[in-house]
């Protein structure tokens, strides 16, 4: 059992507040992804959980035990670093076995566990090599194997795939997900790559400027973003926004069109994902600016009522720059945000 609880954690570096009042519970064996742009505090939060950084305020609990006063080695965690941190003076075998040797396990047990994890990560052929003789992808595998060999309650990963090329990243993503699902560990995975987050996570915590904006399943984060920031951050291309003025009785005026919406009297933002638009007889009038054929789809960048607006359309359509499209939003996919609070409105 290794549930992680983060209670009211704040971190200040001098006068700079890197984390504001973070509250988060990660279930036993859950795969939690911390997602956010560079500089939003993901690494800081992970390092506080690992014990490599001390929180200015708040508590960290792992497996029902308060750990924020304990050194990293006593927290039952293992960590995979962004730059791998494979020890250059040790062979791959000794790297993977490093933590086991520190636990003073007998030689044959070390050997058994090193060989098993090396097998899982497909590096059994490399056990005699030094880190200088490995490629980036192989070093990454060693770093993960070294963490897994500890059989930790919690595994913490800080952008472990960010230094790999795109193809390798995709391959490792699936592999890592499979291996971790097998291992019964609770995982916290930091990334700025939303595709990685969507594809691996049980739950995503979207971070922005030192706060957690939303913590939910990938599909929930995608479909029902809790704030405008999430809507604009997740999805490639992200959600479209248009100002909406109330027309009474749950009706809203959006770019000259009347649409159904929540019953409110203050102006809102209308939001729709680019793939939830269809060309139709009635809808939003969009002037085409750029057409990008992407093979499977057509990415069309337009202007609606002077605002930037993107649509992902069927690639069979013939659309040219300067055309005017009439785009109908799929009604059940429309979302509304309060411009005052930037939060979603039901």
């Amino acid at each position: 059992m290794a549930e992680i609880q983060i209670k009211n954690v704040a971190k200040r570096f001098g006068s700079y507040q890197a984390l504001h009042d973070i509250n988060l519970t990660i279930q036993d064996q859950e795969f939690m992804v911390l997602l956010g742009a560079s500089g939003c505090g993901k690494t800081t939060l992970l390092r506080i959980i690992a014990g490599l950084e001390t929180a200015t305020e708040g508590e960290v609990w792992i497996g029902g035990r308060r750990v924020d006063h304990l050194p990293p080695k006593d927290r039952g965690i293992a960590m995979v670093f962004q730059n791998y941190a494979v020890f250059p003076h040790l062979t791959v075998f000794e790297n993977i076995g490093f933590g086991l040797r520190m636990q003073k396990l007998p030689n044959d047990e070390v050997k058994r566990r090193v060989e098993r994890t090396a097998g899982l990560m497909h590096i059994d052929q490399l056990l005699g090599r030094y880190s200088g003789e490995l490629s980036g992808g192989q070093r990454q595998r060693v770093a993960v194997a070294r963490a897994l060999a500890m059989e930790p309650d919690v595994i913490l990963m800080d952008e472990p795939l960010s230094n790999l090329d795109a193809l390798l990243r995709m391959e490792m993503r699936a592999e890592l997900k499979g291996v971790l699902a097998e291992s019964n560990t609770t995982a916290i995975y930091v990334t700025h790559d939303q595709v990685e987050a969507m594809s691996m996570a049980d739950r995503i915590s979207v971070m922005h400027q030192g706060k957690i904006v939303q913590a939910a399943s990938p599909i929930e984060v995608y479909r029902n973003p809790a704030a405008e920031f999430v809507a604009g951050f997740i999805g490639n291309p992200p959600m479209n926004f248009l100002p909406a003025t109330p027309a009474g009785d749950g009706k809203w005026t959006v770019a000259g069109q009347i649409l159904d919406g929540p019953s409110r009297t203050t102006p809102l933002h209308f939001a729709i994902r680019p793939e939830d638009l269809r060309p139709a007889d009635t809808g939003l009038a969009a002037t085409v600016k750029v057409v990008e054929p992407l093979g499977a789809h057509l990415l069309v960048t337009c202007s609606v009522d002077g605002a930037l607006f993107r649509a992902v359309l069927d690639s069979d359509l013939t659309v040219r720059r300067g055309d005017t499209l009439t785009l109908a939003p799929q009604p059940d996919r429309v979302r509304w945000f309060d411009p005052e609070t930037t939060l979603a409105v039901a």
Partner: peptide, 18 residues
């Protein structure tokens, strides 16, 4: 010597000294 190497050792069961 990157600090990350030392930090990795700390998470793998080392004290500052070891």
């Amino acid at each position: 010597i990157p600090l990350e190497l030392e930090e990795a050792a700390w998470t793998l069961g080392c004290t500052r000294l070891t």
